[in-house]
C-alpha cells in the first residue's frame, strides 16, 4: 500500500489536535457571541492570545515549589499522549494505538487534571485552591460515570479498545439504535459538559470567581505557563469531542488507508464534526442557566443514572 508512512499518520494525530484545538475553542466563543447578538472575538483569537502569552514573562508565587511549574508541562504531555490512543484520523489501529485502551486514555486525562489541580493547590491562592478542590469533589462522581461508560463499551464490543467500538458502531444501524449505546453516549456528553467547564456546570470565561471550578485553577499562572494551560484545556476539549464523535456518535469519514488525500480529508472532517458539537454546546450554553454549586451533584447524578442504565439494559437482556 502506498501513501504516507505509518509514523507520519501516527504523528499527525496529536498534531491535528494540537493545532486545531484553539480554533475550536475560538469558534465556540464566536458562535456564542453571535447567538447573543454580539460580534464576539475572531475565530482565530485564541491563537493570537497564545502567541502573546508565550512572549510574556512568567511569574510564580513565593513559596511555590517546582511542582507549580512542572504541572502545565506535564498536563500538556498528557494531552499530547491521549490522541495516540484514540481513533482521531484512522479507522484502523495505528501501532501506538495499542499502547493503552480507553481506560488508559481516561487515566492519562485524569493525570493531567490531577497535575493541574496540584499545581493550583501549590499557589496558596484561595480561588485556585477552591477550584481544584471542587473539581476533584465532583470528579469523584464523574469518574464512575466514565467507568460505567467504559463498561458499556466493553460489554458491547467484548474489548475496551476505542477502535473496536468505533468499528462496531459503523457496522450497522442496529448498533446505533440500541439503548445502551444511546445512553452511554448521552452520559459521556454530560461528562464532557462538566469536564470542559460549560453551562450548566460553570460559565465559561466568566468573571465570577465564586462559581468557578475549571477556570479558577489557572489563576496564578502567567506567561508561557498560562499559555500551556489554556492550550491544554482547549486540547482536552477537542480530545473529549473526538472520543464522543469518533467512538460513539459518528465514526464515519475516518481514513481507512494511508493515502495523503484520505488523511487530509479525515482531518477536515474531524474538525467539521468537532465544530458541529461545538455549535451544540454553544446552543446549550445560551439556553440554560448555570446551576448553583450544590445542584451540580444533581447534574452529575443524572449522568451517573444514564451510564448505569446503559450497563443495566445491556447486561440484562442484551439491550
Amino acid at each position: 500500500m502506498s501513501g504516507m508512512p505509518v509514523a507520519a499518520v501516527q504523528a499527525l494525530q496529536p498534531l491535528t489536535v494540537l493545532v486545531a484545538a484553539p480554533g475550536v475553542s475560538g469558534f465556540i466563543a464566536t458562535a456564542e457571541a453571535r447567538m447573543q447578538g454580539r460580534r464576539g472575538p475572531r475565530v482565530l483569537q485564541p491563537y493570537y492570545d497564545l502567541a502573546k502569552l508565550f512572549r510574556k514573562e512568567s511569574l510564580a508565587p513565593v513559596g511555590a515549589s517546582a511542582v507549580f511549574l512542572a504541572a502545565p508541562v506535564l498536563a500538556m504531555v498528557c494531552y499530547l499522549t491521549v490522541p495516540l490512543l484514540i481513533p482521531v484520523l484512522t479507522s484502523y489501529g495505528l501501532p501506538l494505538g495499542y499502547m493503552g485502551d480507553i481506560l488508559g486514555g481516561g487515566i492519562i486525562l485524569s493525570l493531567a487534571s490531577f497535575a493541574v489541580a496540584v499545581g493550583a493547590a501549590e499557589t496558596g491562592s484561595p480561588y485556585a485552591q477552591l477550584g481544584s478542590s471542587r473539581s476533584k469533589t465532583f470528579a469523584a462522581i464523574t469518574e464512575p460515570v466514565m467507568l460505567f461508560v467504559v463498561f458499556a463499551v466493553a460489554l458491547v464490543t467484548g474489548t475496551d479498545l476505542p477502535y473496536a467500538m468505533a468499528a462496531t458502531v459503523r457496522s450497522g444501524a442496529d448498533q446505533i439504535l440500541r439503548p445502551s449505546h444511546l445512553l452511554a453516549a448521552a452520559a459521556l456528553f454530560l461528562v464532557i459538559l462538566y469536564e470542559t467547564g460549560r453551562i450548566p456546570v460553570e460559565a465559561h470565561r466568566s468573571t465570577n470567581e465564586f462559581g468557578m471550578i475549571e477556570e479558577a485553577r489557572s489563576f496564578e499562572y502567567s506567561g508561557p505557563y498560562f499559555a500551556l494551560l489554556t492550550w491544554g484545556s482547549a486540547m482536552k476539549q477537542l480530545i473529549l469531542y473526538t472520543i464522543l464523535i469518533n467512538v460513539f456518535l459518528a465514526p464515519w469519514g475516518l481514513s481507512s488507508t494511508r493515502d495523503a488525500s484520505d488523511v487530509v480529508l479525515a482531518v477536515v472532517l474531524l474538525v467539521a464534526k468537532a465544530l458541529v458539537i461545538g455549535l451544540v454546546v454553544a446552543v446549550i450554553d445560551n439556553s440554560f442557566a448555570k446551576l448553583r454549586l450544590f445542584k451540580i451533584t444533581e447534574f452529575v447524578a443524572a449522568a451517573f443514572l444514564l451510564a448505569v442504565l446503559a450497563v443495566f439494559t445491556l447486561y440484562l437482556g442484551g439491550g
Partner: peptide, 11 residues
C-alpha cells in the same frame, strides 16, 4: 446484537 426493531423499542 438486538435487531433494529428491538433496539428502537428498547430505546
Amino acid at each position: 446484537v438486538p435487531s433494529i426493531y428491538a433496539g428502537t423499542t428498547n430505546a
